[in-house]
Design a protein around this nucleic acid. Structure first.
Lengths: 210, 210
DNA sequence: CCTACCGATCGGTAGG
DNA sequence: CCTACCGATCGGTAGG
C-alpha cells in the first residue's frame, strides 16, 4: 500500500485510539468514526486493522533505529567515550519518544499485538536496538568509566525508564523535549557512572546524617 | 464476592491471560477454557470480567501500598536519611513486582481498563503511592544528599524503570528477587545521588579519555 | 466512499 | 457447573 495523505490520517487517528484503548480495544469502526466515514470505507485505504498497526510500529522502529545510529556515529569521535555515547543514545531515544508520544506509546505497548512474521521481525529489531545500549554500557564498565554493574540489567533499567516517558510525559506541559532529553541523559548517566567507592555503595551504603 | 479457592484460581489464570493478551484481548471464554469449564460457568464465581480485573488490580495496589509503608517505617529510624528511604522504597517495589510478575504486569498495563469509580480510585491510589517517591527525592534534594534534580521527573524516571521490570524479568532466570532488588536500588540511588560537581555534569560533561 | 451483508465471537442471563 | 440462548459487535467482503 502506498502512503497517501488519507492513509497517514488513518494512522494518526489510529495511534491515538490504540494508545488510549489498546489495539484489541479499538475497533475498525472506532477508527472510521474518528474520520467520519463508515467502517467498510476504511478498506479502500488499508488492507486490514493489523496493517494499520504495523505501519505505526514499523515507522517508529525505523525512527528509533536511525536516531540511535546517528547518535552513536556523532558520539564516536576521538575524545568521546562510553559516557558520551550513552548520553547520545538516551537523548536520541527521548527525542523520538517526545516527538510523537502517541505512536511511541503504541510502539512500546502494542508490539505484542503484531502477528505473523512481522512479530518475529519486530522482536529481532528490538533486540538489535537494545544491544546498542548493552554494548555501550559494557564498554563503560570495561574502561572503568561506569561502575561494575551488570550491562544487561543496567540496559533494561535504562531503556524501560526511557520508554516509561510515554506513561507521564505531556508535550504541552512545563518540560520541553530538549529539557526532557537533558534531564533523562543526566539521570541515566549517573545511574551507571563510576563514583568514588561505588563498589561498596550498594551493599552497605550509609549516608552521614546532617 | 467472597474469596474462595476457585475464585483465586480464576484470578491466577486471568492474570496470565491478561498479561499476555491484555484485558480486551482476553475473552471470558478464554479464561474458562484455561480452567476447563464453560464460559457461562465462570459466572457462578464472578460477577463480571471487569470484577476479575479489579480483584487483580486491587490486590496488587494493596501490596504495593503496604510494602511501601513498611519500607518507609523501617527506614525512618535515626541515622537513616533520604538515601536509605529511597533504597527501601525501591527494594519494596521490586520485591512486590518480582514476587508476582503476572499480576504486576496486569497492574502496570491494565489499570486503564478499570471502569467506573474504581478507575478514579486507582488513579488516586497510584498518585498517593508515587507521591512517596517524590517526597523522598525532594527531601534528598533539599538536604543535598541528592543532586539538584526535579523530584517529579526523577520519581517518574525511577518508578517507570521499576515497573519496566515486568517487561523483561524472568523469575526462573539467573537473577533472584533479592539480587534484583539490590541491583535496582543501586541504579536508582545513583541516578539521583549527589556526587562531586554533579551540577555541572549534565550540561558539559566530558570524560577524560583513557 | 457508500449500503448491505457475512459468519464468528463477544459478555452475559435463564433455568436448571 | 451445565445447555441453550440473548442482542450487540467484531473484522472484513461484495458490488456498486
Amino acid at each position: 500500500m502506498v502512503e497517501t495523505p488519507r492513509r497517514r490520517e488513518i494512522e494518526d487517528v489510529a495511534s491515538v485510539l490504540f494508545r488510549e484503548h489498546g489495539y484489541s480495544g479499538t475497533s475498525v469502526r472506532d477508527i472510521a468514526r474518528a474520520l467520519d466515514i463508515r467502517g467498510a470505507s476504511l478498506y479502500a485505504h488499508v488492507a486490514s486493522k493489523q496493517d494499520v498497526l504495523w505501519s505505526i510500529i514499523d515507522r517508529m522502529a525505523s525512527r528509533f533505529e536511525i536516531a540511535a545510529a546517528d547518535a552513536l556515529a556523532a558520539a564516536s569521535t576521538p575524545g568521546a567515550g562510553p559516557g558520551e555515547r550513552l548520553m547520545a543514545l538516551v537523548r536520541a531515544h527521548v527525542g523520538v519518544v517526545a516527538d510523537d508520544v502517541g505512536r511511541a506509546t503504541v510502539f512500546v505497548h502494542e508490539w505484542r499485538s503484531v502477528t505473523g512474521e512481522r512479530h518475529d521481525q519486530i522482536v529481532e529489531r528490538r533486540d538489535r536496538y537494545e544491544e546498542r545500549f548493552r554494548a555501550v554500557i559494557a564498554e563503560g564498565v570495561a574502561t572503568g568509566t561506569f561502575a561494575p554493574i551488570d550491562p544487561e540489567v543496567a540496559a533494561a533499567f535504562t531503556l524501560t525508564a526511557l520508554n516509561g516517558i510515554v506513561a507521564w510525559y505531556q508535550p504541552a506541559g512545563r518540560i520541553g523535549p530538549t529539557d526532557l532529553a537533558d534531564l533523562y541523559a543526566d539521570l541515566a548517566l549517573h545511574a551507571v557512572l563510576a563514583t568514588d567507592g561505588r563498589r561498596e555503595v550498594p551493599a552497605g551504603w550509609r549516608e552521614v546524617p546532617a
